[in-house]
Write a protein that binds this DNA or RNA. Structure first.
Lengths: 250, 250
DNA sequence: CGCCCCGTTGAGATCGCTCAACACTAGTGG
DNA sequence: CCACTAGTGTTGAGCGATCTCAACGGGGCG
């Protein structure tokens, strides 16, 4: 697994299934896949579909955690803020990922859309009922959680030990891999995050991110297409940087 | 919750219970607490107690994940290494914490003792059986996992946004709080990690850690007692630094 | 058309790293 | 008992990666 791969977690290896979440009408791989028709019927009772604009919040840090969300369309980012206003992005989420699941009373971080998109909102008490009725769902959540934890640890490693360019390379690779797992076609990938968004995720300033991207471009490793399109023209080099095969040790 | 509090996770809020793990003979709060006597009896069948020396590995990164461990005595650290040899500590673990639980085939990180200590080793297949027999255990693990995830995110925030002194302060506070939750008495706490260990956890060099500790000492915020004793003489200042109320925003 | 947001690039400042010297402690063996 | 050694901690000086501050360009949208 690649470091910085916080993006892949809530889908990876779980989702070639394709159950359809009744009310949402969308493929909701992460959450619904392990359930049969009756279960889905149960669940759709209180789930609601919401359309969201770019930069709109799904929920905010500190909100009572009354719902769990499935991101059905678009890309979101998770952020946590400090008392003095400093802010960091904890991770990014894509279609199929789950947002806001926690046993705590409040959301420990906020989630906001980067693109236009939709989420499927499920009442938390409803989810608890589901757990009691379909214990396999709980196991599913446990697996998701452990994978997510593993990705967080990769991110910790990257933040603690990677140079700026290594972090940006790792981010690009994980972004591209996340889209490939979602059956992306063609050489041009979507990069809806701004330099500032990326910087907040990687613990860098937006200028440093911009410089790294420019450096990759000048080396012929990537090509930018319009405002949010990116193509990896020398993926091997990026992967090597991202994996931490850097100049440090022998 | 304090940033950097990766240390508290696997105990916190779960453990005023005090079931005794039969074979180990030790209080094994995190793992055994939710079980009744019959369940403990079940489990003790294949659990084994192991004594370990300082710097001895409990398991290594890449080892097949055949067992789950409960740290019954001592302090351990979790580390992950990069292909080029760079290494980071993912977290620290104390008596009562669980080590090495994963649904994957291999351990994604290594665990090694910082002090002399003991672990209780449980066969993984045995644990899976337990999950089937006592579903509440699975729920317990899910809660643990989510809390751990939250702590990892705090750590991410710290690595991405905190200055060197803020990170060291946050580490000291979380260390002290972890010991307080374990019914520590007296003003002097145990700090078995070397400057290098702390640095690997915080993404700093050992010199930078040493300088931060010296600065705190010179400001009268802490006092060192012998080689592994530390006393917080101005806890409020440390907490303020650790919480991110720093000089940045207004 | 003009504004605003985003991205790019440059120059200087700064924080933490690197390299190096030295002190202290504990364990070891003479 | 003491010299010796290895590991750890401390401190200093210089360097370098990243941040900060600043200017400028381009594209989308009202």
């Amino acid at each position: 697994m690649h470091p910085l791969d916080a993006t892949r977690v809530l889908m990876d290896g779980l989702g070639s299934d394709s159950s359809v979440c009744m009310k949402c009408g969308s493929r909701s791989v992460g959450l619904c896949a392990p359930l049969d028709a009756a279960a889905l019927d149960d669940m759709s009772g209180e789930s609601e579909r919401l359309a969201l604009e770019p930069r709109e919040a799904v929920f905010r840090q500190g909100d009572p955690a009354r719902h769990v969300y499935t991101l059905t369309e678009g890309m979101a980012r998770l952020t946590r803020v400090l008392p003095d206003g400093r802010q960091a992005a904890i991770g990014f989420r894509f279609a199929g990922d789950i947002l806001g699941f926690t046993p705590e009373a409040e959301h420990a971080f906020g989630a906001e859309m980067l693109t236009r998109g939709t989420v499927c909102r499920l009442d938390r008490r409803r989810l608890e009922q589901m757990f009691r009725r379909y214990p396999i769902m709980e196991r599913r959540f446990l697996d998701l959680c452990v994978r997510e934890l593993s990705a967080s640890q990769d991110h910790i490693l990257a933040l603690g030990r990677f140079s700026a360019e290594e972090r940006v390379a790792a981010f690009l690779i994980s972004l591209v891999e996340a889209q490939e797992r979602r059956a992306h076609v063609g050489p041009v990938f979507d990069l809806p995050a701004t330099r500032a968004d990326i910087g907040e995720f990687l613990g860098l300033t937006l200028e440093t991110v911009s410089r790294a991207v420019s450096a990759f471009r000048k080396r012929g490793w990537i090509r930018l297409h319009g405002h949010s399109g990116i193509e990896l023209t020398d993926r091997a080099s990026l992967v090597s940087l991202a994996a931490g095969e850097g100049a440090h040790a022998a």
